[in-house]
């Protein structure tokens, strides 16, 4: 498995690049202190400051972990992808946050995650990428289903959701061969 430790991924509307500590901005911090943004994220359970963001960024080493920011073509930071890789098994776990609420409902995840999966499978040569979301995160479920991820199971009452109620966590997976087959079918349309 080889990889450019500083990938730049281009999509039609966005550019994805590795975050550096300089990207720990008040704008980014604002997302983590916005209950609507963190409603479905693990970061809702943690205190967040600029130093915490810098530590989080540097915890991704560009080998077993990648943290890519999602930027508009004009350089506006709108969200992030975190990929943690189980190197011996060539399996990645992908998480996403769209922090800028002005970009919600614009198919940002569908467009940019396709680039992330392409990078994971064709550059990093991973065998599989996993994802998960709270069962109450309906937009995330939509994005996984729409993008063809396999639903691999439900971890019952695994997390604490709104109002302290217990909610399920839904597990998804995408195999490299399924991704390639899906892309071939889309290209034939």
């Amino acid at each position: 498995m080889t990889a450019n430790a500083r990938p730049i991924l281009e999509t039609e509307r966005y550019r994805l690049r590795i975050l550096t500590p300089a990207d720990a901005t008040p704008r980014y911090l604002g997302w983590l202190n916005d209950p609507q943004v963190t409603r479905y994220l693990e970061s809702r359970h943690r205190p967040n400051g600029l130093d915490d963001i810098r530590a989080y960024i540097t915890s991704h080493d560009g080998h077993a972990g990648f943290l890519l920011g999602i930027f508009t073509k004009t350089g506006e930071h709108v969200g992030n992808y975190s990929m943690r890789i189980d190197l011996p098994n060539a399996v990645g776990t992908l998480g996403v946050m769209i922090g800028d609420r002005d970009h919600w409902g614009r198919d940002v995840v569908l467009e940019t995650r396709a680039a992330m999966l392409h990078y994971a499978f064709e550059t990093l040569r991973l065998h599989k990428v996993c994802g998960a979301c709270l069962s109450t995160n309906l937009p995330a479920i939509y994005n996984y289903r729409r993008q063809g991820w396999a639903h691999e199971g439900i971890r019952r009452e695994q997390a604490i959701g709104d109002g302290g109620s217990r909610v399920d966590v839904v597990m998804f997976g995408m195999l490299a061969r399924d991704w390639r087959q899906r892309r071939e079918m889309e290209q034939e349309k």
């Binding site: 919600w104 409902g105 198919d107 937009p139 939509y142 994005n143 289903r145 439900i154």
Partner: peptide, 30 residues
């Protein structure tokens, strides 16, 4: 029917059948 529209779809189904959907049912809606 986009990601935010999915909220409306699930809400409309729940209103139609008079109860909340469980996780497996939510996953079935495509």
């Amino acid at each position: 029917w986009d990601s935010l529209g999915h909220l409306k779809v699930i809400a409309a189904i729940e209103e139609k059948i008079g109860r909340d959907l469980n996780t497996e049912e939510v996953l079935a809606v495509i």
